[in-house]
């Protein structure tokens, strides 16, 4: 692990995207019975991974993308929200957020150790 500040910036953006994704999941669950509602998803990690795979060095230009899910089949009322899947996505998203926070905390502790060892 290195205490490089670009990693900190990326982690903060990942946490921001996870918070935003939590909002999108909450909107899906709230609209569980709204006729014609289509669930939405927030894509960010996929885009980052694709950029890293293609060898891109500049990740700042990559923004989270809000996508309407038209692939999941809808019920009679035109609504395609599945409560169990959304709750699963919500729990997964929370764990992802906590993972980013734990890594970020590791960075801070490394920095603190570096500062204190110099005294």
């Amino acid at each position: 692990m290195n205490a490089d500040s670009t990693n900190v910036g990326l982690l903060v953006r990942l946490m921001g995207a996870a918070n935003e994704r939590g909002r999108v999941i909450a909107a899906n669950v709230a609209n569980e019975s709204t006729p014609g509602y289509r669930r939405q998803v927030l894509r960010f990690e996929e885009h980052l991974r694709a950029a890293l795979d293609s060898g891109a060095r500049e990740l700042d230009a990559i923004e989270p993308e809000l996508v309407t899910d038209t692939l999941t089949p809808a019920g009679k009322d035109g609504n395609n929200v599945n409560l169990e899947l959304e709750l699963n996505a919500g729990r997964q998203n929370r764990l992802l957020y906590e993972t980013y926070a734990a890594i970020l905390q590791g960075h801070f502790e490394l920095l603190r150790a570096g500062i204190e060892s110099g005294r």
């Binding site: 569980e32 709750l87 919500g90 906590e98």
Partner: peptide
């Protein structure tokens, strides 16, 4: 039953947010 389940799902998501905010505070 459908309405109660949906109500509970909303509660669970709200608890998720509380725990996420709590994690951020501990940073």
């Amino acid at each position: 039953i459908t309405a109660v389940r949906a109500y509970e799902a909303n509660i669970e998501l709200q608890e998720n947010f509380v725990r996420m905010a709590d994690r951020a505070l501990r940073l």
